[in-house]
């Protein structure tokens, strides 16, 4: 067997033995304190949010909201809806942000 063949065989063995980065799962790195209660996505986040104007909103005056002003544009999210979805993925202008509390 030529030296080249031996080197090629050794290289192939090494490739097989190493765990490639793409084969590792993020779950392998989770700390012991992580407790899974639900499957991922069981609480549906919002990915394409829609809005209504203040005059059209049906919301109690005393309801709690998370408010933000980005690039001069004010937006509000009722905490009661946020509690049901946990995360709203949003964008204003060039600013992508996640409404979460």
């Amino acid at each position: 067997m030529s030296t080249t063949l031996i080197r090629t065989a050794l290289g192939a063995l090494l490739l097989l033995a190493a765990t490639p980065a793409w084969a590792q799962q993020p779950e392998d790195e989770l700390p012991d304190t992580f407790k899974r209660l639900l499957r991922r996505g069981a609480i549906a986040a919002v990915f394409e949010p829609t809005y209504v104007s203040a005059s059209a909103a049906q919301i109690r005056p005393e309801a709690w909201v998370l408010g933000v002003v980005i690039e001069g544009q004010p937006r509000a999210y009722s905490l009661s809806l946020l509690n049901r979805h946990e995360v709203v993925n949003d964008t204003i202008g060039k600013t992508p942000f996640a409404a979460v509390w």
Partner: peptide, 12 residues
């Protein structure tokens, strides 16, 4: 301001 509306609801 505008407010988030999900399935026609702004509050729960």
């Amino acid at each position: 301001t505008v407010i988030l509306s999900v399935n026609g609801r702004e509050d729960s």
